[in-house]
Design a binder for these strands. Structure first.
Length: 300
DNA sequence: CTAGGATCCTGTCAGC
DNA sequence: TGCTGACAGGATCCTA
Protein backbone atom coordinates (compact mmCIF):
# COMPACT_ATOMS: atom_id res chain seq x y z
CA UNK A 1 0.00 0.00 0.00
CA UNK A 2 2.37 2.66 1.10
CA UNK A 3 3.54 4.64 -1.89
CA UNK A 4 5.88 7.59 -2.07
CA UNK A 5 3.69 10.09 -0.15
CA UNK A 6 3.03 7.62 2.65
CA UNK A 7 6.72 6.81 3.01
CA UNK A 8 7.61 10.49 2.90
CA UNK A 9 5.01 11.12 5.60
CA UNK A 10 6.70 8.45 7.71
CA UNK A 11 10.13 9.89 7.03
CA UNK A 12 9.06 13.34 8.20
CA UNK A 13 7.20 11.97 11.19
CA UNK A 14 10.00 9.75 12.42
CA UNK A 15 12.62 12.40 11.78
CA UNK A 16 11.23 14.39 14.67
CA UNK A 17 11.08 11.38 16.94
CA UNK A 18 14.06 9.07 16.54
CA UNK A 19 17.05 11.12 15.34
CA UNK A 20 19.80 10.87 17.94
CA UNK A 21 18.44 7.74 19.56
CA UNK A 22 20.62 4.65 19.82
CA UNK A 23 19.50 1.06 19.38
CA UNK A 24 19.46 -0.93 22.61
CA UNK A 25 17.88 -4.09 21.28
CA UNK A 26 16.26 -5.51 18.18
CA UNK A 27 13.72 -8.32 18.45
CA UNK A 28 12.87 -10.23 15.30
CA UNK A 29 9.53 -12.03 15.43
CA UNK A 30 9.48 -13.05 11.77
CA UNK A 31 12.77 -14.16 10.31
CA UNK A 32 11.95 -13.37 6.71
CA UNK A 33 11.13 -9.76 7.62
CA UNK A 34 14.68 -8.90 8.64
CA UNK A 35 17.64 -9.38 6.32
CA UNK A 36 21.16 -9.05 7.66
CA UNK A 37 22.91 -9.10 11.00
CA UNK A 38 21.13 -7.15 13.71
CA UNK A 39 24.32 -7.03 15.76
CA UNK A 40 25.62 -4.40 13.37
CA UNK A 41 23.13 -1.91 14.84
CA UNK A 42 24.27 -2.30 18.41
CA UNK A 43 24.59 1.05 20.19
CA UNK A 44 24.51 3.01 16.97
CA UNK A 45 22.83 6.39 16.91
CA UNK A 46 20.37 7.37 14.22
CA UNK A 47 21.68 10.31 12.24
CA UNK A 48 19.38 10.63 9.23
CA UNK A 49 16.17 9.47 7.59
CA UNK A 50 16.13 9.29 3.83
CA UNK A 51 13.72 8.01 1.21
CA UNK A 52 14.30 6.41 -2.17
CA UNK A 53 11.06 5.85 -4.02
CA UNK A 54 8.92 3.80 -1.66
CA UNK A 55 11.88 2.74 0.50
CA UNK A 56 12.80 4.39 3.76
CA UNK A 57 16.44 4.43 4.80
CA UNK A 58 17.28 4.89 8.45
CA UNK A 59 20.90 6.00 8.65
CA UNK A 60 23.08 5.26 11.65
CA UNK A 61 26.46 6.60 12.59
CA UNK A 62 29.24 4.25 11.65
CA UNK A 63 28.01 3.80 8.10
CA UNK A 64 25.19 1.35 8.75
CA UNK A 65 21.62 1.72 7.52
CA UNK A 66 18.28 0.03 7.77
CA UNK A 67 16.38 -0.06 4.52
CA UNK A 68 12.66 -0.45 5.22
CA UNK A 69 10.25 -1.46 2.50
CA UNK A 70 6.62 -1.63 3.59
CA UNK A 71 5.31 -3.23 0.39
CA UNK A 72 1.54 -3.84 0.64
CA UNK A 73 0.72 -3.93 4.33
CA UNK A 74 3.70 -2.63 6.27
CA UNK A 75 3.49 0.08 8.86
CA UNK A 76 5.83 1.69 11.38
CA UNK A 77 4.64 2.73 14.81
CA UNK A 78 6.73 4.63 17.30
CA UNK A 79 5.77 4.36 20.95
CA UNK A 80 7.51 6.61 23.44
CA UNK A 81 6.36 9.73 25.26
CA UNK A 82 4.32 10.21 22.10
CA UNK A 83 2.75 7.60 19.88
CA UNK A 84 3.04 8.03 16.16
CA UNK A 85 2.50 5.75 13.21
CA UNK A 86 2.36 5.67 9.45
CA UNK A 87 1.92 3.23 6.59
CA UNK A 88 -0.82 0.71 5.95
CA UNK A 89 -3.73 1.90 8.10
CA UNK A 90 -4.89 -0.80 10.52
CA UNK A 91 -5.89 -1.02 14.15
CA UNK A 92 -2.29 -1.81 14.97
CA UNK A 93 -1.86 1.97 14.90
CA UNK A 94 -3.85 1.86 18.15
CA UNK A 95 -3.40 -1.66 19.55
CA UNK A 96 -1.00 -2.70 22.27
CA UNK A 97 2.29 -3.60 20.67
CA UNK A 98 3.88 -5.91 19.82
CA UNK A 99 0.80 -7.44 18.15
CA UNK A 100 0.42 -10.61 16.12
CA UNK A 101 1.51 -8.58 13.09
CA UNK A 102 4.67 -7.20 14.62
CA UNK A 103 7.62 -8.59 12.66
CA UNK A 104 10.44 -6.51 14.10
CA UNK A 105 10.69 -4.45 17.28
CA UNK A 106 13.46 -1.94 17.89
CA UNK A 107 14.10 -0.75 21.42
CA UNK A 108 15.98 2.51 21.85
CA UNK A 109 18.30 3.55 24.63
CA UNK A 110 15.61 5.74 26.19
CA UNK A 111 13.17 2.84 26.45
CA UNK A 112 10.98 3.93 23.52
CA UNK A 113 10.15 1.49 20.73
CA UNK A 114 9.73 1.36 16.99
CA UNK A 115 7.48 -1.43 15.68
CA UNK A 116 7.48 -2.79 12.16
CA UNK A 117 4.07 -4.40 11.65
CA UNK A 118 3.17 -6.17 8.43
CA UNK A 119 0.12 -8.40 7.95
CA UNK A 120 1.16 -10.07 4.73
CA UNK A 121 4.90 -10.33 5.38
CA UNK A 122 5.78 -8.88 1.98
CA UNK A 123 7.70 -6.01 3.51
CA UNK A 124 11.15 -6.22 5.00
CA UNK A 125 13.93 -4.46 6.82
CA UNK A 126 17.43 -4.90 5.48
CA UNK A 127 20.81 -3.99 6.96
CA UNK A 128 22.99 -2.14 4.46
CA UNK A 129 26.36 -0.47 4.74
CA UNK A 130 26.64 2.99 3.17
CA UNK A 131 28.63 1.57 0.29
CA UNK A 132 26.06 -1.16 -0.32
CA UNK A 133 23.06 1.10 -0.76
CA UNK A 134 23.57 2.05 -4.38
CA UNK A 135 24.26 -1.57 -5.25
CA UNK A 136 21.18 -2.92 -3.54
CA UNK A 137 19.03 -4.93 -5.95
CA UNK A 138 15.99 -2.73 -5.31
CA UNK A 139 17.70 0.66 -5.06
CA UNK A 140 19.94 0.33 -8.08
CA UNK A 141 17.05 -0.22 -10.47
CA UNK A 142 14.97 2.73 -9.36
CA UNK A 143 14.23 5.43 -11.86
CA UNK A 144 14.12 9.11 -10.94
CA UNK A 145 12.18 9.88 -7.79
CA UNK A 146 8.66 10.99 -8.68
CA UNK A 147 9.00 14.15 -6.60
CA UNK A 148 12.69 14.71 -7.35
CA UNK A 149 13.92 17.99 -8.82
CA UNK A 150 15.66 16.00 -11.51
CA UNK A 151 12.43 14.47 -12.74
CA UNK A 152 10.81 16.63 -15.39
CA UNK A 153 8.11 15.74 -17.87
CA UNK A 154 10.69 15.21 -20.59
CA UNK A 155 12.31 12.61 -18.38
CA UNK A 156 9.01 10.79 -18.18
CA UNK A 157 8.70 11.05 -21.94
CA UNK A 158 12.15 9.56 -22.41
CA UNK A 159 11.34 6.67 -20.09
CA UNK A 160 8.02 5.96 -21.77
CA UNK A 161 9.80 5.78 -25.10
CA UNK A 162 11.31 2.47 -24.02
CA UNK A 163 7.89 1.09 -23.04
CA UNK A 164 5.86 2.07 -26.08
CA UNK A 165 3.72 -1.05 -26.01
CA UNK A 166 2.99 -0.91 -22.31
CA UNK A 167 -0.27 0.38 -21.03
CA UNK A 168 0.42 3.72 -19.43
CA UNK A 169 -0.74 2.47 -16.06
CA UNK A 170 1.70 -0.46 -16.15
CA UNK A 171 4.50 1.93 -17.11
CA UNK A 172 3.73 4.26 -14.21
CA UNK A 173 3.79 1.34 -11.79
CA UNK A 174 7.20 0.26 -13.10
CA UNK A 175 9.70 1.57 -10.54
CA UNK A 176 12.45 1.75 -13.16
CA UNK A 177 10.38 4.26 -15.13
CA UNK A 178 9.70 6.50 -12.16
CA UNK A 179 10.21 5.67 -8.50
CA UNK A 180 7.38 5.96 -6.01
CA UNK A 181 4.15 5.60 -7.98
CA UNK A 182 1.80 2.81 -6.91
CA UNK A 183 -1.78 1.92 -7.68
CA UNK A 184 -3.36 4.91 -5.95
CA UNK A 185 -1.28 7.63 -7.54
CA UNK A 186 -1.27 5.93 -10.93
CA UNK A 187 -5.07 6.10 -10.97
CA UNK A 188 -5.19 9.61 -9.55
CA UNK A 189 -2.57 10.93 -11.96
CA UNK A 190 -4.30 9.47 -14.99
CA UNK A 191 -7.60 10.94 -13.85
CA UNK A 192 -5.88 14.29 -13.37
CA UNK A 193 -4.58 14.04 -16.93
CA UNK A 194 -7.84 12.68 -18.38
CA UNK A 195 -5.97 9.72 -19.84
CA UNK A 196 -7.38 6.20 -19.92
CA UNK A 197 -5.09 3.75 -18.06
CA UNK A 198 -5.09 1.30 -20.96
CA UNK A 199 -3.71 3.80 -23.47
CA UNK A 200 -0.39 2.54 -24.78
CA UNK A 201 2.56 4.64 -23.72
CA UNK A 202 3.61 5.04 -27.34
CA UNK A 203 0.27 6.61 -28.26
CA UNK A 204 0.49 9.54 -25.86
CA UNK A 205 1.05 13.08 -27.05
CA UNK A 206 3.59 15.36 -25.37
CA UNK A 207 0.67 17.29 -23.97
CA UNK A 208 -0.75 14.17 -22.36
CA UNK A 209 2.60 13.07 -20.96
CA UNK A 210 3.15 16.50 -19.46
CA UNK A 211 -0.27 16.35 -17.83
CA UNK A 212 0.35 12.88 -16.42
CA UNK A 213 3.66 14.09 -15.02
CA UNK A 214 1.92 17.05 -13.44
CA UNK A 215 -0.77 14.73 -12.08
CA UNK A 216 1.82 12.55 -10.37
CA UNK A 217 3.51 15.50 -8.73
CA UNK A 218 0.36 17.35 -7.69
CA UNK A 219 -1.57 14.41 -6.28
CA UNK A 220 1.48 13.26 -4.33
CA UNK A 221 2.20 16.71 -2.95
CA UNK A 222 -1.37 17.09 -1.86
CA UNK A 223 -1.34 13.74 -0.11
CA UNK A 224 1.83 14.60 1.77
CA UNK A 225 0.38 17.96 2.71
CA UNK A 226 -2.69 16.29 4.15
CA UNK A 227 -0.56 14.02 6.32
CA UNK A 228 -0.80 10.88 4.17
CA UNK A 229 -1.65 7.61 5.80
CA UNK A 230 -0.83 8.07 9.44
CA UNK A 231 -2.25 7.48 12.88
CA UNK A 232 -3.30 11.14 12.90
CA UNK A 233 -5.67 10.57 9.97
CA UNK A 234 -6.78 7.08 10.98
CA UNK A 235 -9.42 7.85 13.56
CA UNK A 236 -12.10 10.26 12.44
CA UNK A 237 -13.73 12.92 14.57
CA UNK A 238 -16.70 10.62 15.10
CA UNK A 239 -14.43 7.82 16.31
CA UNK A 240 -14.81 5.71 13.19
CA UNK A 241 -11.83 4.25 11.40
CA UNK A 242 -10.92 6.50 8.56
CA UNK A 243 -9.66 6.17 5.06
CA UNK A 244 -7.03 8.81 4.42
CA UNK A 245 -7.92 8.60 0.74
CA UNK A 246 -10.82 10.92 1.51
CA UNK A 247 -8.28 13.68 1.92
CA UNK A 248 -7.18 13.82 -1.68
CA UNK A 249 -8.44 10.95 -3.84
CA UNK A 250 -10.83 11.75 -6.70
CA UNK A 251 -11.25 8.26 -8.14
CA UNK A 252 -9.39 5.69 -6.04
CA UNK A 253 -11.92 3.58 -4.13
CA UNK A 254 -14.57 6.03 -5.35
CA UNK A 255 -16.39 3.70 -7.74
CA UNK A 256 -20.09 4.57 -7.84
CA UNK A 257 -19.62 8.15 -6.77
CA UNK A 258 -19.67 11.10 -9.13
CA UNK A 259 -16.70 12.42 -11.05
CA UNK A 260 -15.85 15.82 -9.58
CA UNK A 261 -15.38 17.23 -13.09
CA UNK A 262 -18.36 15.91 -15.04
CA UNK A 263 -20.56 14.05 -12.51
CA UNK A 264 -20.34 10.77 -14.44
CA UNK A 265 -20.17 7.75 -12.15
CA UNK A 266 -16.65 6.56 -11.42
CA UNK A 267 -16.07 2.93 -12.42
CA UNK A 268 -13.63 0.25 -11.38
CA UNK A 269 -12.04 -2.06 -13.93
CA UNK A 270 -9.02 -4.35 -14.00
CA UNK A 271 -5.88 -3.23 -15.79
CA UNK A 272 -2.69 -5.28 -15.77
CA UNK A 273 -4.10 -7.32 -12.92
CA UNK A 274 -4.75 -4.34 -10.69
CA UNK A 275 -7.95 -2.71 -9.58
CA UNK A 276 -8.23 0.51 -11.58
CA UNK A 277 -10.52 3.45 -11.03
CA UNK A 278 -11.49 6.00 -13.63
CA UNK A 279 -14.12 8.30 -15.01
CA UNK A 280 -15.41 6.72 -18.25
CA UNK A 281 -16.33 10.14 -19.60
CA UNK A 282 -13.16 12.09 -18.82
CA UNK A 283 -10.81 9.21 -19.60
CA UNK A 284 -11.69 7.70 -22.93
CA UNK A 285 -9.83 4.97 -24.71
CA UNK A 286 -8.97 6.21 -28.18
CA UNK A 287 -7.40 4.28 -31.05
CA UNK A 288 -3.69 3.86 -30.47
CA UNK A 289 -2.58 3.31 -34.03
CA UNK A 290 -4.35 4.68 -37.06
CA UNK A 291 -3.00 1.92 -39.29
CA UNK A 292 -4.73 -0.73 -37.22
CA UNK A 293 -8.42 -1.27 -36.92
CA UNK A 294 -9.67 -1.10 -33.40
CA UNK A 295 -12.77 -0.72 -31.38
CA UNK A 296 -13.68 2.81 -30.67
CA UNK A 297 -14.64 3.12 -27.05
CA UNK A 298 -16.97 5.92 -26.21
CA UNK A 299 -16.48 7.91 -29.38
CA UNK A 300 -14.65 11.19 -29.58
C1' DC B 1 15.48 -6.16 -24.14
C1' DT B 2 10.18 -5.76 -23.12
C1' DA B 3 5.42 -7.48 -21.72
C1' DG B 4 2.38 -10.30 -19.20
C1' DG B 5 1.23 -13.69 -15.77
C1' DA B 6 2.05 -16.28 -11.46
C1' DT B 7 3.57 -15.82 -6.96
C1' DC B 8 4.83 -14.63 -2.05
C1' DC B 9 1.26 -14.13 2.58
C1' DT B 10 -2.71 -12.94 5.60
C1' DG B 11 -6.94 -10.55 6.36
C1' DT B 12 -11.41 -8.99 4.91
C1' DC B 13 -15.56 -8.88 2.57
C1' DA B 14 -19.35 -10.47 -0.54
C1' DG B 15 -22.22 -14.19 -1.60
C1' DC B 16 -24.29 -18.46 -0.62
C1' DT C 1 -22.98 -18.24 11.69
C1' DG C 2 -19.83 -20.64 8.67
C1' DC C 3 -17.74 -21.58 4.48
C1' DT C 4 -15.61 -20.28 -0.04
C1' DG C 5 -13.59 -17.55 -3.29
C1' DA C 6 -12.09 -13.12 -4.80
C1' DC C 7 -9.42 -9.49 -3.82
C1' DA C 8 -5.99 -6.22 -1.50
C1' DG C 9 -2.55 0.14 -2.07
C1' DG C 10 4.10 -4.20 -4.22
C1' DA C 11 7.75 -6.19 -6.42
C1' DT C 12 10.05 -10.18 -8.29
C1' DC C 13 10.63 -14.22 -10.93
C1' DC C 14 9.55 -16.82 -14.91
C1' DT C 15 8.13 -17.36 -19.62
C1' DA C 16 7.41 -15.93 -24.40
Amino acid sequence: MPELPEVETIRRGLEKLIIGKAVAKITIFEKKSFIGDKKMLGNQKITALARRGKALIIGFGGGVNLLVHLRMTGQLVYVGAKRWGGGHPTDDFLNDLPSKHTRVMVEFDDGSHLYFNDQRKFGFIKVLLDKEIENDSFIKRLGADALGEDFGWQDLKRQLATHQKSKIKAALLDQTVVAGVGNIYADESLFFASVHPERLAGSLSDYEIEKIWRGVRETMRQSIKSGGSSLKNYVKADGKRGDYLDLFAKVFHKEGSNCPRCQTKIIKIKVCGRGTHLCPNCQKLVIDDKSRSGTRNGGV
